[in-house]
Amino acid sequence: MNNTVPGDIRPDHGIIAGWVSEGASVLELGCGGGELLQLLSRRKHASVNGIEIDESYIFSCVARGLSVAHQDIDDGLSEYADGAFDFVIINQCLQELRRPHTALSEAVRVGRKVIVGFPNFAHYSARIQLAVQGRAPVTPALPYQWYDTPNLHFLSISDFVQYCAKNRLSIDRKVFLNNRGTIRWWPNLLAGSALFQISRNGRSLLK
């Protein structure tokens, strides 16, 4: 098999690959065509599994030699035992689920660590479009029109942090991104998207 050219790796995938430990067991919810799982399998020798609802993505995953289940995350993860995986990843699909709370609850049950990536709805360009122009925001991280968006839920970085606090989830790692790279300051205003690593009882950065 070919080695992936480093330049081809999406920034969020690169960060996630840095967080996942060597040889870990990984379940990705909404794994799409399996790019991230393949990266984790090759770079971290992770034992990887995916769940994906879109049939065309299943073909791509199978072509990559990945184990993937064609199912709806909204139906739950009852076939997996508590702590069955070192990592559960929900990257860029939380906002498309009908029941994101169920998915997150299941993810922290099944995964000892959970990595969540999502577009930040409170990015300043979204705020301007909504507040000044009075239009539903269309941003690089949320590139859809209101009538064709797959997104059902819109959340900001602050929303997610508050969600974790309310549900007693500890935030063990976090990275904020815009289209030029990672950023540190005023993430809820300046970040297009965010990545969090959370767990039920890990070290908390929330205090």
């Binding site: 049939e55 299943i58 073909f59 993937v68 064609h70």
Partner: peptide, 13 residues
């Protein structure tokens, strides 16, 4: 999955 067996599933149209 419950038994820890490697499985891929696809429901074709």
């Amino acid at each position: 999955k419950l038994g820890g067996v490697d499985a891929t599933y696809c429901e074709l149209n």
